[in-house]
Structure formats: C-alpha cells, structure tokens
Amino acid sequence: MGFLPSGFVKVNGERFTDLAVCHPMGHYLEALHRTGYYYTSIGIMQMTAAIFLLIPRTATLGAVIYFPIILNILVLSWAVRFEGSFLSAPLIVLANLYLLCWDYHKLKFIFPWEQRDVYLN
C-alpha cells in the first residue's frame, strides 16, 4: 500500500518530498523530478507493483516488479546516508525476498541452475 501514494505523486508530476536540495537525498530527488517522463514511469511502476501485490493472483508478478524498485531505494538510502529509510528499506527488501522465496516454485524456471527434463524425439 505504501507505493500507491508515492507512485501517485510521481504520476501527477509533483515533488515527492520537501527535503532541501542541500541534503543529498533532496538533491537526488529534485534531479529525478526534473527528468520528466522517467519520474512519471517510476510512479507508474510503483503503482503497478502495489496493485499487483494486493491481488493474490498477481502477487508474484508484483513482488518481481517491486524488488528492483525497493532495492534501488535501499542502495540510495545507504549511499546518501538517508536516515528516513535507513531501517525501513532493508526490512522491506527482506519482506520482498520472503515473498519471492515463498513463490520460488513459480519462478524457478528462470534460474539456470534448475534442471529441466527435456525429452527429445
């Protein structure tokens, strides 16, 4: 649910935060906001992941879409030493990894180490 409001703000073209541009995270988010369509596309993907995660039938796809987004937030938070998500981002990444592991049986066909029975005639 947390990605719905943040994605909606981006789709509407509004700034995500009121952090000053002298703060490293504020500077990054201001630059991201100025990219235009890229900022909007991130918002669309955040909202798509959130909606997919809320629907049981599409939750696996939602977790797959959500993972690179939240991993990027984690790396960015650590890189700029942003205290606002210093604890929450790693916990959300762990929760997402749990979801991906829970649905491993649905995803294992994409991994090269999984053996497939192939019968050639």
Rank of each mutant, 00 (worst) to 15 (best):
Ala31Tyr: 04
Val64Gly: 06
Tyr66Gly: 02
Ile69Met: 13
Thr48Met: 08
Trp102Ile: 03
Trp102Tyr: 13
Glu14Cys: 04
Leu94Ile: 12
Leu100Thr: 07
Leu91Tyr: 09
Gln46Pro: 03
Pro112Lys: 09
Phe67Leu: 08
Gln115Met: 08
Arg34Pro: 01
Gly36His: 01
Asn12Tyr: 14
Ile55Gly: 04
Leu87Arg: 08
Leu76His: 08
Leu4Lys: 03
Tyr28Ile: 15
Leu76Tyr: 07
Leu99Pro: 01
Arg57Glu: 13
Ile44Tyr: 03
Ser85Gln: 14
Asp103Thr: 14
Trp102Gln: 15
Leu29Cys: 03
Ile51Arg: 06
Trp113Tyr: 13
Glu14Lys: 11
Phe109Ser: 04
Ser88Lys: 05
His23Asp: 15
Ala63Glu: 00
Ile65Pro: 01
Ile51Met: 12
Phe109Gly: 03
Asn12Ile: 07
Phe3Trp: 14
Ile92Val: 14
Tyr119Val: 09
Ile70Ser: 03
Leu4Asn: 02
Arg116Ile: 10
Cys101Tyr: 07
Leu61Lys: 07
Leu94Trp: 15
Pro68Val: 12
Gly62Glu: 08
Lys106Ile: 11
Gly7Gln: 10
Ala95Met: 14
Leu107Gly: 05
Leu54Val: 02
Leu61Met: 14
Leu97Thr: 12
Arg81Leu: 11
Met1Val: 13
Gly13Ser: 10
Gly7Tyr: 05
Gly62His: 06
